[in-house]
Simulated assay, not measured.
Amino acid sequence: MKPSDSLRAECPPGTIAVTGLGMTSSLGLTAVASCAAARAGVTHWAPLEIEEADVKRLKSVPLKGHAARGYTDGFTGVGRLLRLADGALADVLEDARLKPADMSRTGVFLCVAGDLYARVRSESVRHEEGVTPELADALEEEAAEARKEARAHVGRRLLPQLLKLHGLGIPPGAQDYFAGGAASFTTALAKALELLRGRVVDRCLVGGVDSLVEGAALEDVYEMGLVRTPESAVGFFPGEAAAWVLLERADAARARNAAALAWLGNVAVEREAFHRFSGDVPLGAALLRAVTSCCSGGKPEETGLVLANLNGDEWRARELGLALSEMKDAGLPADAPLWSPPASFGEVGAATGAVSACMAVRGFARGYAGASSALVLLLADDEARGAFLLHDAKAS
């Protein structure tokens, strides 16, 4: 998608059902446990591998984050992502009670982290070193090749091994990655809706996995000053999670007697012309366009819950605040209670959309959502902004 491009997938309630959830996080190894802990206000802190000076205590202390301790210990890189995604996939398959015969017409779409942080950090390091333009070009070419190889490594290992672990024979045309920030989940949803409405598949597993608590991912966000530290009250706490939602056409769900947990509504993706590190001021324009497109034709007063991934970053809070102000003036949902998944799980990047969906659907199931519809807003440090609607199946 180009900066001017937009994507909207219209999905009337009652056509595409959410029939299963799965999650692995710092708060639990299932969607039920994770969302119940988040609802209760539980947080599970873990010391991270980078230490920061604490002036008040006159010593170095480890950064705090939300790691799935005891579950991902000893795993790094792609292996850690596979561990997280594997647990969440096992959870959704059990929750949805899918049989092997059901998998022949199932799509799988997984959101993974993009390379924005690595790319921007690489550029900033070369600028600080004051290298010549020729050397800078050579270093950038080398760094770009390394990032390309890292993406290829994820592609070769993550989904193929994940599907193999569960004995799932998914056709190549019905599986794909979506690399980027939190809003990549809305792009994956739109792709799933395209295949479902075209009857290419009967159901789609759409998920996300990310980990910012170790290795190069943690180093990048720390060195760029994005992480909360003892000396900085602004920034996010790194987290890690994987989550999946199972989407099915209503007729396919009825054919296997699957219960609808929720109905998926409209999905919209818009893009800004800049990213978090470009120096531009966030005005919430792309997010507003996504919400307007997502909510068009509906009744805004019925959307009594908003989920937005505020994570402690001032840049993101400013953008959401401006967007909410414009939404209110436009008669869009703006005064509803606001849930922020990072408050419970930390910043989980590409997993944010799926985690947010699980929280909303569990809120419907347990009756504490306080609304029959939820609007999920996905802000990101890259250019993409997303929004999608979920409707309580019991209410309809």
Rank of each mutant, 00 (worst) to 15 (best):
H153G: 09
A334M: 04
R157N: 01
L116Y: 13
K2S: 12
L283S: 03
D86S: 15
G41T: 01
G284Q: 09
G215H: 10
F185C: 06
L110D: 04
A351M: 04
L261R: 12
E123Q: 15
A33I: 02
T292K: 15
A182P: 01
S124E: 14
A290F: 05
E145D: 14
G349C: 05
L21I: 11
Y368W: 15
K328I: 00
A336K: 04
G297D: 13
D335H: 07
L163P: 02
A308Q: 03
G28V: 03
S356W: 07
L377W: 01
F109V: 05
L7T: 03
V78G: 02
V55Y: 05
L116N: 11
D54G: 09
G180K: 12
S340L: 09
Y222A: 04
E194I: 06
K191W: 12
E52G: 00
A393C: 06
L379N: 12
G41M: 08
A152G: 11
R276V: 08
A380T: 15
L283H: 10
S372V: 12
R8Y: 01
A242V: 08
N266L: 01
G87S: 06
E10K: 10
E123R: 15
P12A: 13
S25Y: 07
V281E: 15
S25L: 02
M103F: 11
G14N: 10
E10I: 09
E52N: 04
A144M: 10
L63H: 01
A233F: 10
A393R: 02
L305I: 02
A38T: 03
F274G: 03
R121T: 03
S232C: 12
W263S: 07
S293M: 07
T15P: 00
F388C: 05
S6D: 04
Y368E: 14
S211H: 08
P133D: 15
L89H: 10
S122A: 15
E142C: 11
R105P: 00
G155K: 12
A260Q: 08
L338V: 06
E140H: 13
V61L: 14
H391Y: 12
S373W: 00
A258H: 06
G235I: 11
A259K: 11
G169K: 11
